[in-house]
Every structure is written in structure tokens, then in C-alpha cells.
């Protein structure tokens, strides 16, 4: 099957969508016109650049280029997850970094090595988009879990201290908050499992269908993607909440006042 190749001239027409969004912003005095313009230009530059990089990777097929690309994507995901925290704490980069790395690496390894059995394993055509999708979702889950945990510990400080005063370890004292943080991180991927195929056709599946894949094949891929995302988010957020205990408590199970701050 052939697909319609998109020219830059045709893409230019799509800019009208951005202009219409700017018109809405102007009409309601939202002040978002500049952000929309900058966002549109940034998206164009970033995506064009990544398009060329990927093309280069696809042609070269060297494992170290692919791994290098994955490292850059991982660093960007960690940086973004840290930037989404309402309070920045010492050790946050390490906590989020280890969690996102382990959660994403484990899931990606299973998908590439066991489910798809990609050969060679570093084939950028599979590894880059799948790892990218996993990293993006792990990043969101990790950021959500950590923000929620900190906010809950701050709000429920009396309860946490009551538990500590009864002889609970720091982890035992925040267990109810850990559970709530995990739930809030995992619910979006569970919701997406519920509505996928009904409310929306996800990007990867839509892309495959447009590129000529049979819908049933595209569905199989998409199922694998939503399952792997659910697992990656669960593993990453679980690691975040466990490692994060040391961000909020001293080794002697005392709450660090400076770690809580405002919500």
C-alpha cells in the first residue's frame, strides 16, 4: 500500500490551524498568541531536526549511535520530570533518573528482546519509537507520583508525625501517601486502556495505518504499546515513591522540614 507523501507546501496549509487557535486567543484576550507562535516554530524545528537525526540513524545502523540517542532522550525525560516538580530538592534528579531509567529499560528490553525479537536489537526503526513512547509515559508517571507524594506528606504531616511517634519507620509512616501517589500515577494509563479504540485511535496506530499497515496488525502493535506503557508507568512510579522516602526523611526517620514547603 502507498501513502500520500506530505509536501512542505501542503504542511504550510496546516499552519492555518495554529492561526485559528491564535485568533481564539486574541478574541478572548488569553494572551497566548506569542506562546502559540513560539510553540509552533519550536515544534517545527525540533521535529525537523529529529527527523534528520532519525534518518541518519536508520541509514547508519550503528548500535552506539542508537544508544547515544536513547541516552539523550533519557536525559531529556529526567530533566523534564525534575522541572515538573513544584519544589526542587537535593537528590531529586538521582531519584527520578534511576526510576525512569530502570522502569523504561526493563520494559523496553522485554518488548524488543522477548515480544518482538527484533534483530539486531538496536534496530532504530523499532527501538527509537518504542523506547520514546515508554520514556515519555514513564516521565509523566514519575513526575506525577513524586509531586503527589510530596504534596500529600505536606498536607498530612500531623498524621505522618503521629505514626513516627508511635514507632513507625519513615516508609511505614507514609505508606497511605505512597499508595495514593501510585494510584494517581497509574490511573491515566489505566484510563487509556479503558477508552483506547473507542474514544481515540492512538498516534502510533494511526501512523501505521496511514503508512499502509493492515489495521489488524496495527491493532496488535497498539495493544502491545498500551500494555507496555501501563507496566512502565507502574514500575517507574513504584521506584520513585520508594526511593523518594530519603528525600523527605533523614536516616533517623525524622521529617526534613525543608523538603515539604508549600504545596
Amino acid at each position: 500500500m502507498e501513502y500520500i507523501s506530505l509536501s512542505y507546501a501542503s504542511l504550510g496549509i496546516a499552519v492555518l490551524f495554529i492561526i485559528s487557535a491564535m485568533a481564539v486567543s486574541f478574541r478572548y484576550r488569553l494572551g497566548l498568541e506569542k506562546d502559540l507562535a513560539v510553540g509552533a516554530v519550536r515544534a517545527f524545528v525540533q521535529l525537523t531536526a529529529i527527523g534528520y537525526v532519525l534518518q541518519l540513524l536508520f541509514v547508519s545502523e550503528r548500535w552506539y549511535y542508537v544508544v547515544g540517542m536513547l541516552v539523550i532522550m533519557l536525559a531529556a525525560a529526567i530533566k523534564n520530570a525534575v522541572a515538573r516538580q513544584s519544589v526542587t530538592l537535593k537528590g531529586m534528579f538521582t531519584t527520578l533518573g534511576i526510576s525512569i531509567f530502570v522502569g523504561s529499560a526493563l520494559t523496553t528490553a522485554v518488548v524488543i528482546g522477548i515480544i518482538l525479537r527484533v534483530k539486531p536489537w538496536y534496530s532504530p526503526r523499532y527501538l527509537i519509537p518504542l523506547a520514546g513512547s515508554i520514556l515519555g509515559n514513564s516521565m509523566t508517571g514519575a513526575a506525577l507520583a513524586l509531586n503527589r507524594l510530596r504534596s500529600d506528606i505536606t498536607h498530612r504531616k500531623p498524621e505522618v508525625e503521629a505514626a513516627l511517634a508511635l514507632g513507625a519507620t519513615s516508609r511505614q509512616a507514609v505508606m497511605p501517601m505512597i499508595r495514593d501517589a501510585l494510584k494517581s500515577a497509574m490511573l491515566p494509563s489505566i484510563s487509556s486502556l479503558m477508552v483506547v479504540g473507542i474514544v481515540h485511535l492512538p498516534g502510533m496506530m494511526a501512523g501505521q495505518i496511514i503508512a499502509g499497515a493492515y489495521p489488524v496488525d496495527a491493532v496488535k502493535y497498539q495493544l502491545m504499546v498500551v500494555y507496555m506503557i501501563a507496566a512502565a508507568v507502574a514500575i517507574t512510579s513504584m521506584m520513585v515513591v520508594y526511593l523518594a522516602t530519603s528525600l523527605f526523611f533523614t536516616p533517623d526517620h525524622m521529617l526534613k522540614a525543608e523538603a515539604l514547603g508549600s504545596t
Binding site: 498524621e159 505514626a163 513516627l164 511517634a165 508511635l166 514507632g167 533517623d252 526517620h253 525524622m254
Partner: peptide, 20 residues
């Protein structure tokens, strides 16, 4: 050990802070 100490030295706070 702080865990052992806190069992020996109990604390009651201004607000009851009971668990839900």
C-alpha cells in the same frame, strides 16, 4: 535507635491526628 526510643517515649499532639 529512634524507632525503639519512640515506643518508650510516647507523644500526644495538640490535634488528635488519628488515622482515617
Amino acid at each position: 535507635d529512634p524507632i525503639r526510643l519512640r515506643r518508650k517515649v510516647g507523644m500526644v499532639f495538640q490535634l488528635p491526628s488519628l488515622f482515617p
